[in-house]
């Protein structure tokens, strides 16, 4: 057996390296995890105790911060909103991405290349750079369409609300922002499905919709799972866009609610810590459950900053 890694190395230098390596790893890991643990531990202190003991262990575990914060911040509604936004946007964008990926890779045409590269260009854009124009567009579109409808005589201009302060607009914007990466990954993936399979099904008389249902979807589950694992945290944690798309509390997502909450209750530390823990728990659990798969996906480079 060759000495291919440090495990077999027995020299003094190697031991020193090992010790330094462990010290570095332990330091960085503590740095990564201690602030989060600090947050969790402090959510079990009363505000009075926090003010006199910020860094230590609580004398007695006080659990009332959680129900208090949950009620004061309306986190029940926000939690449901976050689930709806996340499931809908990730689901719809995944479906559209696969559909378009199938079109781009298996139905070659002149326009396919151009439209595909327009989508790819979107990979370089970050949607939050565009929050001002997106806000203007969304907030003005209701009026524009409303006035049009009024002219036609369908309804009064003020009665038309589809975009600003609606779940629809939030999901629409999220779906749009997820499409470039989704279409990129799906097109590359569907390309690897043998074209002969599609051709054979065509010869048997299957329509494209049937092929999509019976061949493409079942064969593409791995890439759909990748997209899900990648996009669920992105959308769940999104802040910049929903911050401008929605002003009603009843439509806010959890991160937005946490931000507003910590702004209004800045002196009630006990509840604030509980709120922050409520904010970080869902994705921490998501990560703990799917750690292996997420790590593999991130490692494969399927990430967008």
């Amino acid at each position: 057996m060759m000495k291919t890694d440090f495990r077999q190395e027995r020299s003094l230098g190697a031991y020193i390296w090992k010790i330094i390596g462990y010290i570095i790893m332990i330091l960085f890991s503590l740095l990564a995890i201690v602030p989060v643990l600090w947050l969790i531990v402090n959510s079990f202190k009363t505000t009075v105790e926090f003010n006199s003991n910020m860094a230590g262990w609580p004398k007695k575990f006080f659990t009332q911060n959680y129900p208090g914060a949950w009620r004061a911040g309306d986190f029940g509604i926000l939690f449901v909103n976050s689930v709806v936004y996340t499931v809908m946007s990730v689901g719809i964008s995944g479906f559209f991405s696969l559909l378009a990926g199938f079109g781009f890779s298996k139905i070659p045409g002149k326009s396919a290349k151009i439209i595909y590269s327009i989508f790819i260009l979107g990979l370089l854009l970050t949607t939050q750079t565009l929050m001002v124009p997106i806000f203007l567009q969304v907030s003005q579109l209701d009026g524009v369409i409303g006035r049009l409808l009024e002219k036609v005589g369908l309804c009064a201009a003020e009665d038309f609300h589809l975009f600003y302060n609606t779940r629809f607009a939030v999901i629409l914007v999220y779906v749009g922002s997820l499409l470039p990466i989704g279409i990129y990954l799906c097109t590359e993936y569907v390309r690897s499905i043998p074209t002969s399979l599609v051709e054979a099904a065509r010869i048997d008389g299957a329509g494209y919709l049937r092929i999509f249902n019976l061949i493409v979807i079942p064969m593409s589950t791995p890439i759909l799972i990748t997209l899900g694992l990648l996009n669920i945290p992105t959308i769940w944690n999104e802040f910049a866009l929903i911050n401008i798309l929605v002003s009603k509390t009843s439509l806010q997502s959890l991160p937005l609610g946490i931000y507003r909450f910590s702004g209004t209750l800045s002196s009630d530390y006990g509840k604030e810590f509980a709120a922050l823990v409520i904010g970080l728990m869902p994705m921490l659990l998501f990560y703990l459950i799917f750690r292996k798969q997420i790590t593999n996906n991130v490692g494969a480079g399927a990430v967008k900053g």
């Binding site: 378009a100 396919a112 327009i118 997106i134």
Partner: peptide
């Protein structure tokens, strides 16, 4: 088939990214 596969996402994309630019 190509049209109904590509056009819906393309419209959303135009609405959310291209048009705002």
């Amino acid at each position: 088939a190509y049209r109904w596969m590509v056009i819906p996402p393309f419209i959303i994309y135009l609405f959310v990214l291209a048009f705002p630019v």
